[in-house]
């Protein structure tokens, strides 16, 4: 298929996934804000949300304080924030429109409808009301998007690039979420098991739809290292790093065909770490270190995919 088409499909899927993850973070942070004494200050609550999205610096250029109103606006609706839900969905729709030929009409109509429906949320003050409904809507549209792709698209390269975009983005987001939360919560280790801790960690689980999975698998108190295990190594947990690479690796094998490619090697290496790695070893060397390296490698993989398949420079 055309490299440009593949590029648009890949980024379309990444943008939708990004919007969904942003909605998850916003939703959970907002819920936390309703728990008394969840954080020492409003900033203590909302700053991590910015850290997860990785754009604290850009935020500080435009805003003065980490108030709920400002952070919510920045992450949900700010047109100048390339990672806001608004920007991500807009980019998804622009990408889709550029290659509507390459997808089924159901897929295109789904994204076009998403963008038309988005209009109803603009101008709302989410600090007062409607944030949950908005986040639910974003998540639902993202589920619908994946469903319509899965249910209608031919299993060809176009489908592969859509899936690739979804899982590269998801792996990045899950790793960032865990890293920020773990980093933040670990100092209070001595109080593990306390009420606030429970809420924080259950919030993390909720944000990746893993609360019930945790209960089902461990049926025990929520403790940080188990949350980490669930989100890193469990291959049956659909938003875990391992699960993402279970999807990514075979796609790159298939796309590369007989060609050897750096992206295939990188993916294989990461997959092996997640497939054969043990939580004890990861903790011994530091979860933060592990996640930092992972985020970096995952980014590198993204660049390699871009270089090999999507830019297709001709020599």
């Amino acid at each position: 298929m055309l490299s440009r088409t593949a590029d648009h499909l890949y980024w379309m899927a990444r943008s939708i996934e990004r919007a969904e993850n942003m909605a998850r973070v916003l939703d959970v942070t907002y819920n936390m804000s309703l728990v008394p004494n969840a954080a020492e200050s409003e900033a203590g609550l909302w700053l991590p949300a910015l850290e997860i999205s990785g754009n604290v610096e850009a935020y500080e250029r435009d805003y003065e304080e980490y108030s709920a109103t400002d952070v919510i606006h920045y992450l949900a609706m700010d047109m100048n924030n390339p990672s806001s839900i608004y920007s991500a969905l807009r980019s998804a729709r622009e990408n889709a429109r550029a290659v509507r030929v390459a997808m089924t009409s159901e897929t295109w109509e789904n994204i076009n409808t998403l963008w038309l429906e988005f209009g109803q949320f603009t101008g709302q003050d989410f600090t007062k009301s409607g944030l949950r409904e908005f986040c639910d809507w974003v998540k639902a549209r993202s589920h619908l998007f994946r469903g319509v792709c899965f249910g209608t698209m031919l299993r060809d390269d176009a489908f592969s690039f859509v899936r690739l975009g979804t899982f590269i983005e998801r792996a990045d987001n899950t790793a960032r979420l865990l890293d920020v939360k773990y980093h933040l919560l670990l100092p209070s280790q001595e109080e593990v098991g306390g009420a606030v801790d429970y809420y924080e960690w259950s919030a993390v689980l909720h944000s990746v739809s893993a609360f019930h999975a945790y209960q089902k698998i461990f049926s025990d108190t929520i403790v940080p290292w188990r949350v980490a295990e669930l989100l890193v190594l469990r291959c049956d947990m659909p938003r875990s790093l391992h699960a993402c690479f279970d999807e990514i690796t075979p796609i790159l094998e298939q796309l590369s065909g007989v060609r050897s490619s750096e992206s295939r090697r990188l993916a294989g290496e990461l997959h092996a770490k997640l497939h054969y790695g043990q939580m004890n070893d990861i903790f011994q060397n530091g979860l933060h270190e592990f996640l930092s390296v992972f985020i970096e490698s995952n980014n590198l993989l993204g660049s390699e995919i871009q270089r090999t398949f999507l830019n297709a420079a001709v020599n």
């Binding site: 298929m1 055309l2 490299s3 440009r4 390269d157 690039f161 065909g257 398949f309 001709v314």
Partner: peptide, 23 residues
């Protein structure tokens, strides 16, 4: 395929499109 100018290039008296599997 729906192509744009940037997707095509000329070489050896032929027109090619840039695909994920090469020209």
């Amino acid at each position: 395929e729906l192509v744009e100018g940037q997707d095509l290039f000329v070489r050896n008296n032929a027109v090619y499109m840039r695909t994920t599997q090469g020209p």
